[in-house]
């Protein structure tokens, strides 16, 4: 692993982190979700990248 690789991958990691954080904030604010909330917490945290997207697409109920 050279330094450039880390420099190139770091932004990806940061973006992923932002995605997870805003998904969790949204989950906290929202009244109702499709399915239990604790399940969505697990999905958002453990399914990298895909988890937060799936939450935003089908998890939110408004």
């Amino acid at each position: 692993m050279d330094a450039t690789l880390i420099q190139l991958l770091l932004p990806l990691g940061v973006l992923q982190l932002i995605l997870i954080v805003i998904a969790l904030i949204d989950l906290r604010k929202i009244d109702e979700t499709n399915g239990p909330k604790w399940m969505w917490v697990l999905i958002i945290i453990f399914f990298n990248f895909i988890g937060p997207i799936i939450y935003f697409i089908i998890g939110r109920r408004t």
């Binding site: 690789l5 190139l8 991958l9 990806l12 973006l15 992923q16 932002i18 995605l19 805003i22 998904a23 904030i25 949204d26 990248f49 937060p52 997207i53 935003f56 939110r60 408004t62």
Partner: peptide, 28 residues
């Protein structure tokens, strides 16, 4: 309010850089 202005750009960015990155580091 539904964070679309944050998550849609981020997801698009990931789509845009994923392939060039993996192609470049494919040998590794």
């Amino acid at each position: 309010r539904s964070f679309k202005w944050i998550w849609v750009p981020i997801v698009f960015i990931m789509f845009a850089i994923m392939d060039p990155l993996t192609m470049y580091y494919f040998p590794i």
